[in-house]
Design a protein around this nucleic acid. Structure first.
Lengths: 113, 113
DNA sequence: AAATATACCTTGACAGGTGAGGTATTATAT
DNA sequence: ATATAATACCTCACCTGTCAAGGTATATTT
């Protein structure tokens, strides 16, 4: 696992939920979107992505349904639930707290014991 | 594991190295210092701490030696190596990148596909 | 006909974190 | 005196999220 992944670990669910706030989407598209937004700097590995959406659905944060494409490969679409929206708000808050905590712990002006 | 811990995961080494930049220290003190700096909001679990310093030493980022206390329990002191200093700089940079990447991915103004 | 892109999924292994357990010394409260 | 708490170290089995490697299937491009 790359260093970046090791640090992004634990934020996968929040990232996926954030994407679904904009509208229903499917796995492949979620990943392409991440790749686009980060200009190729980051993408979820497929196994990570499908593990995550499975976990999110089991936890009631998203629902899924098969799309009715006439052409191309079938797609499983995901939509965020109201529990998912609430969980997302909490995750955002936790993420802000974690950032602040870590930054506090690596600050230089330690009037330290 | 608390939610905060899941997000702080992967930053343990950086946090410990940051503390050792201020001078040699020992496990128990590192943890008390973290508790102080965060005003009780966060502390490393003992198992996490001792796993981390073992890993750091195996990787050559810190050295250790037994203190010569006349009283109280024995203490194993740790000092950061030059490799450790270099690794710390890299970790700081990785952390900034990870923060930016995650924040980018949860930003609201997604002109999104 | 072969390669690439789209699109899904599972399994085994790995790494960091942690609960629960252990050892030993010293200080404090009962 | 003695029990409790604080200081200080350590290990092991387990959990969780990640991911390499494998698989299936359709459509498009070379």
């Amino acid at each position: 696992m790359s260093i970046a992944s090791e640090l992004i670990r634990g934020n996968t669910d929040m990232i996926i939920l954030s994407h679904l706030l904009l509208g229903d989407s499917y796995g492949y598209n979620i990943n392409k979107s991440i790749l686009l937004k980060t200009k190729g700097l980051y993408e979820l590995k497929e196994a990570t992505l499908y593990t995550a959406v499975k976990r999110l659905e089991e936890n009631g944060l998203i629902n899924s349904y098969w799309g009715d494409e006439n052409t191309g490969a079938r797609r499983r679409y995901y939509s965020i639930t109201s529990e998912g929206r609430q969980a997302y708000v909490n995750m955002l808050s936790e993420w802000e707290n974690a950032k602040n905590l870590i930054d506090l712990l690596i600050k230089e002006d330690n009037t330290n014991a």
